[in-house]
Design a binder for these strands. Structure first.
Lengths: 240, 240
DNA sequence: GCGAATTTGTGCGTATGTATT
DNA sequence: TAATACATACGCACAAATTCG
């Protein structure tokens, strides 16, 4: 395998990055396992060590691999690593919330107009939906989720009978998760939401609206959550 | 000037980065102006081109410089660039809020116990305080600000008679701004806050609590804001 | 516990491509 | 068009951390 001969306008180290990212997505390189050594890889791919290393750097920034001096370069296991969850909610003292998830209901069908718009679907493709409640000393977060099923190769909507984690789902279906964008507003609890969260109607809640994108900026999941904030806060880090 | 001879355990490119960062902080390299070319700089500093470039890469990631192929490497002007504001509030349709600031009052004095704790001051050092209201079709955000004056070399608390921007202040006093961390909760408007924001008491508001740190992770500013969310939302991007 | 082998990190030098001025 | 600046790519040597016999 050699890139150098290919006619491509893209920089060689970008091609290296893309190639390895694809290998990871396809499961050729499995989570938790080491890549060949840099010298080996550079040789296999027919590029210089420096070029390979620049590609690996990019993959490291994208959280696809970790490198340990003296040990090796490893495919990151997003499924096992509990940090890959896009969850900004914390307890009042800033600790992670040890919540449990109550799975309320699931379903699937063609995307609604709003789902189609938010998930940037070109047609009313299949969408898996799910309603769940997070508990921690009582219910605190109700979530309604829409998953762009068509973007997870071979995904069976009917199998969605339990809470899932996007990192696990992505890893199982050859999808690389990138970033997410979330907006928060204050909303009053509707009668139904109030019941689920065991609060009075009219209680002010934090309404969270989040879209998770793939590394290629394709929307994967749309989620709207209603959160009672009595024991919880929303925490972010700003990096300019 | 040569680093190579120095006895330092730190990597050479880190020393290059730190040296240039210091030059920028001190104003030797001025915002908006170009650095010497890479070849020149490498020569001046007595390091190889590759080492210099690795240092520049780090500075670019820290938003201290921008590099343009064919043109040059420039010191970023955080004061002129309106993006460096750590502001996650947007209009409902996601646009920047064209607000104006009403400066209510200012003061200064030794840090309170809470300020000392939040700003990680070792003693009750001088703190500049300021109360202001942001307007956009009426008042929407009341902010009470505590600035760690001792961390801005030669800062005169009494000069604080107008709204300031942290980027400007930092640039004027040789401070490099790094990241910020912010937490949001829902709080009811006190009588005083309600008056300032022209809402009914008991109106649910978003309470924002933010600390801005220097590049060296030293707290610079602590700010608590109360925001009415009728025309505004809080937006973040999550990167894992 | 030590040392050898392995692997990534750092540093140098050079040549060429590409965008800007 | 020519000069200049950053970007890409190659190759080599050694340092530092880890692993394993």
């Amino acid at each position: 395998m050699s890139f150098a001969k290919k006619i491509s306008t893209r920089a060689l180290y970008i091609q290296v990055r893309d190639h390895l990212a694809q290998q990871i997505a396809r499961g050729v390189l499995k989570p938790g396992t080491p890549l060949p050594s840099e010298l080996e890889l550079a040789d296999q791919l027919g590029v210089s060590l420096g070029t390979l290393r620049k590609g690996l750097e990019a993959l490291e920034n994208e959280r696809l691999i970790t490198r340990r001096q003296g040990s090796g370069t490893y495919v990151r296991d997003h499924a096992a690593d509990m940090r890959f969850t896009f969850d900004n909610l914390r307890t009042k003292d800033g600790a992670a919330i040890p919540f449990t998830v109550e799975f309320v209901s699931a379903g699937s069908g063609p995307a609604s107009a709003e789902e189609q718009e938010r998930l940037q679907l070109e047609a009313p493709e299949a969408v898996a939906r799910c309603l769940q409640v997070r508990h921690h000393e009582g219910p605190f977060l109700l979530e309604q989720i829409s998953l762009a099923a068509s973007r997870f190769a071979g995904f069976d909507c009917t199998k969605l009978t339990n809470p899932y984690r996007i990192a696990v789902l992505a890893q199982e279906h050859g999808v690389l998760v990138g970033t997410a964008s979330e907006s928060a507003e204050i909303a009053r609890a509707s009668r139904e939401v109030a019941a689920r969260l065991e609060v009075d109607p009219e209680t002010p809640l934090l309404r969270l609206d989040r879209i998770i994108y793939s590394l290629g900026r394709v929307p994967l999941e749309w989620r709207v959550g209603y959160c009672r904030m009595n024991a919880v806060k929303y925490v972010t880090t700003l990096r300019n």
